[in-house]
Design a protein around this nucleic acid. Sequence first.
DNA 1: TTGAAAGCGCTACCAA
DNA 2: TTGGTAGCGCTTTCAA
Lengths: 346, 346
Amino acid sequence: MGDEVTIMDVAEAAGVSPSTVSRVINDSAPVSESTRSKVVKAVDDLGYRPNKFAHALRKQTSEVFGVIVPDISNPFFSTLIRGAEDRFHENDLSLIICDTKGELDKEQRNVEMLIKERVDGAIVTSAEGEVDGICRLFEEGIPVIAVDREPTSREITAVLTDDEGSGVQATQHLMEKGCRRIGFIRGPSGISTAEKRFAGYRKSLEESGKTFKPELVAQGDFTFEGGKRAFEELVRLNGREELPDGIVVANDMMAVGVIRKAEELGIEVPEDLALVGFDDILLSRLINPPLTTVSAPTYEMGQIAVDFLLEKVEVDRDMANSRKKVLKTHLVERRSSQYGARRNGY
Amino acid sequence: MGDEVTIMDVAEAAGVSPSTVSRVINDSAPVSESTRSKVVKAVDDLGYRPNKFAHALRKQTSEVFGVIVPDISNPFFSTLIRGAEDRFHENDLSLIICDTKGELDKEQRNVEMLIKERVDGAIVTSAEGEVDGICRLFEEGIPVIAVDREPTSREITAVLTDDEGSGVQATQHLMEKGCRRIGFIRGPSGISTAEKRFAGYRKSLEESGKTFKPELVAQGDFTFEGGKRAFEELVRLNGREELPDGIVVANDMMAVGVIRKAEELGIEVPEDLALVGFDDILLSRLINPPLTTVSAPTYEMGQIAVDFLLEKVEVDRDMANSRKKVLKTHLVERRSSQYGARRNGY
DNA sequence: TTGAAAGCGCTACCAA
DNA sequence: TTGGTAGCGCTTTCAA
């Protein structure tokens, strides 16, 4: 245990100097084939494994990266993480995953931890529209990429989905299904994805010459319960008679809440009320009726974020040169949006 | 950026030696109050932050821990992770989370990565009943705790839930609800949780003098699709007339599959078929009908695993001294088990 | 109670 | 193409 095999031992066994062993291991300088094989043999024989700490101290680089998300148990983020994790591992890099639970002070603490660990870079989905965490990372000179949510107050490289386009897609889909009175349930304010999906809704309305009606809009918070409450609000605002016949809900989780609440109230989905969500989480396929939703390439987002980050780390560390990638989304049509269809007819 | 404040700089600014600064920072030896305050002031003034790499190299300890789970997007494991993460952070420790996707070779690679990172300890939920990964960690002298699933081939400290007891609870509950022909859908073989829940089912049958009928048992794999298939199998084995009137399903995910498949086949849950699952994932509350399930203190499990691990690391590193903690579960009664109840009657 | 100095294991510079 | 060696920043023994 305590008797670790060092580069010195290998050097001795191979009859060369530690520098040569280092060169072989890291392939950092030309070494003659004969010495190389001697070294390789010694490494194998002794079961040598480089000491990560010494390496890190010398190179001032940890080869560890951080990923910060608001909620690891949210399928959207766990898929994102999987994409990132796979890509990091392909590059033989490790990652530390942090869950902020959507709390700003937790995000702050996580950021400090990543700084303490001296991560070589980080991928962040801010808890709020705030960017304090990202700024701290900046200050420490740690490359950062924003993913999914776009920080407002600072120019930064980001990987996003086309949320406004998604909002348009969702709204148009309901129109095509014959809905005339289309409502919207919003996500938390200050979060770019939520705002942009709403903007897409308004844009779509405008394009088809409809007037925007504030009473068709309710505020939600991206949670199941929030979806239920927002729908109740819509019922309160419009009465049972004047209810919207279709609702674009800013994420799937809330849409599931709407389905449940509608059920409680005896309003049939999709016969009386058509629904579209965003994210395409697993649940959306399993719920009854299955939820029509706008799907983003979440796994790929994670991968691309890593690619951007590594480029920033290895090629151009200047954080001032930011770039932006906006990924296209697509609509997954399921039963919740078959407005007017009688159950057996579908 | 490059100009890092070192312990030397602090020493100079405070007019003391580096050793004294170290003693103050780590509280590792008595220092007079006057020097201490000088040092503290210098640390603040210069914004000194200890270099993690140097510390690690010197102490041969990373203060980073690893957690390996089969599926980070499975709510059960993400909750477990949250429990562990919170506890680690309380102790100012970092953690690296690894997702094996249930694949053995991925588990192997993750283990190698943790070894490379020189984690101070690890918490593992094996992908299979296998323990290769755990053994590798053993070999490297890294303390390991098993959580949720019990490795069979090796004695090791483990934090588990009372799966056999849970199986008994679930089965008895269905009996109390009036079910006479109770079936079981099994989880993947070789996984201790799956096996023990099944054992509980058999035990419960036995205790109430019922005979075990193999045709009431189908094999599943813990997935949604697997649940659907297993239920079809049960239908095939028994025919529509002789179907079980209640099924204990080895986890919630599969139980949701059963609900969906039953719906497709026009079999009403819980009117014609009562269902109980295990795990109490979020989905179980959101599905219709809401799923009765045996709930385990998952979050606490994560915390306790950390407590055990830290004890092993700090107090008694001898892995031969293993211990076991089995956590009690409780039944969460929802509509899926209200056998025979007509919908409005409940 | 404090300081001097020897490394922890590795990389990379400078010489050969 | 190779070796010697100085240090990365810290902790810890030993001596004062």
